[in-house]
Each structure stands twice: as structure tokens, then as C-alpha cells.
């Protein structure tokens, strides 16, 4: 601590101006000056209040745009963009799929996406877990071909727990995942889930290996 903590204010720290503005208040040695309020402070103080009144009146009493109004405007813009995108996205493009499925790097990328997004429900080896086995040739919502799996992946089946992936994966990413899934048809599983859906033969899996229990 400094030792100059005395309750005597009438030392040379007070300027002439200070001395003129010193009030006779004294509380435990604390005195008060009476400087006028700084002009910039007054401007801020009254400025904020003067801004507030018309602002409040405009938004509350004069039908200024509500949060819903501005939301709906934003939505309109975005839906326009999405509509175009979805229209384009909805069309299965065999040539794009072919080029992706024939590029090993893209299939590896598809595997990575599968591990990140699909294994939590379909199991680490796609053997089925929360969702169905994807390697046994049985399909519930598609016919197991790229062009029938494609729209299902995009739209999902919320009732069955399959989310829509159109808003989470890009078009190329969906093709990559499907390319990967097609490469693991007929995979030998240690502990596969009971088959669900209908059997659709494919090149890798022309005959069912397991039968539905019921």
C-alpha cells in the first residue's frame, strides 16, 4: 500500500478548476466535485433514447416487419435456390454415377463417408444394427440398384428412422456412398442382422444366402 492515503484532499492534486467546483460534501474524507456532464456522454445518453422511441413505435405500433415477415422473405429466396438444386438433384445421372463408381479414389471416399454417416445405424460392416443389413441383397425401400437407392437416400424414410441425406451430402457424395455400398454386396458377415424386405438379385449376389426368419 502507499502511505499517502490520508483523508486530506486539499493538497496540490486539485487544479484551480477543481477547487472552484469542489462541493462541501465530505463522507469519511471523500469529497465531491461537480463537473458538468461531458457533452459526448449527454449526446450518447439522449441519442440512444431518441433513437429508441421511433424504433419502438415503428416495429410495435406501425406494423414494421416482424421476425416472421423477414423470415418468410429469406425463406422465399432460399427456396428458389433449393428448388433449382433439388430439380437437378432429383434426376439420377447414370453417366455421372458410372464415372464415380469407376474411380477407385471416389469409391474410397464413399467408404469414408459411409463410416462417418451410415455405420452408426447400419453397423461397422454394414451388417445391420439399428437399420437393416445392406449387404444381404434384401431391400425394404428400393430394388438395390443405384438408380432406385439414389432417391431413397436423398429423401429418407423418417418413419423408419432413415434420415433424408439431401441436405447433408452433396450429389457427388451420394453417388460415392452408393458406389461403395454396391461394392460390398454379398460381403461375408460374422453376425448379420436378420434380413428385412424383399430379395433383389444383383451381379455380385444372384441368390439369397440367408432367408428371412419368418
Amino acid at each position: 500500500m502507499n502511505d499517502d492515503n490520508k483523508t486530506d484532499h486539499n493538497d496540490n492534486q486539485l487544479s484551480e478548476e477543481d477547487k472552484a467546483l469542489l462541493l462541501d460534501h465530505n463522507y469519511d474524507g471523500i469529497q465531491e466535485l461537480d463537473y458538468p456532464l461531458p457533452r459526448w456522454w449527454l449526446v450518447t445518453f439522449w441519442g440512444a433514447i431518441l433513437f429508441s422511441i421511433p424504433y419502438f413505435i415503428y416495429f410495435v405500433f406501425m406494423n414494421g416487419p416482424s421476425l416472421n415477415d423477414s423470415y418468410n422473405m429469406d425463406v422465399k429466396e432460399i427456396k428458389k435456390l433449393q428448388h433449382n438444386y433439388f430439380k437437378e438433384l432429383a434426376i439420377f445421372k447414370p453417366e455421372v454415377y458410372a464415372s464415380i463408381s469407376q474411380t477407385p479414389e471416389m469409391v474410397d471416399f464413399g467408404e469414408k463417408l459411409f463410416v462417418q454417416n451410415c455405420t452408426p445405424c447400419h453397423g461397422p460392416n454394414a451388417e445391420g444394427y439399428i437399420g437393416p443389413n445392406l449387404t444381404d441383397g434384401y431391400w425394404m425401400y428400393s430394388e438395390g440398384t443405384p438408380e432406385t437407392v439414389y432417391p431413397f437416400v436423398l429423401m429418407g424414410a423418417p418413419a423408419a428412422g432413415m434420415p433424408a441425406w439431401a441436405d447433408k451430402l452433396s450429389e457427388d457424395e451420394v453417388y460415392a456412398v452408393i458406389s461403395y455400398v454396391m461394392t460390398i454386396q454379398g460381403r461375408e458377415q460374422v453376425n448379420p442382422k436378420i434380413p428385412q424386405g424383399e430379395f433383389f438379385p444383383s451381379e455380385r449376389l444372384p441368390e439369397p444366402r440367408t432367408l428371412p426368419s419368418e
Binding site: D4, N5, L14, L22, H25, I30, Q31, Y35, P36
Partner: peptide, 11 residues
């Protein structure tokens, strides 16, 4: 107290 100065502005 610490500054050993009067309060700047009562108003």
C-alpha cells in the same frame, strides 16, 4: 480513497 481525489462529478 485509493486515488486520494474527490469524485469527479456529483451530478
Amino acid at each position: 480513497k485509493a486515488a486520494n481525489r474527490p469524485i469527479y462529478s456529483y451530478r
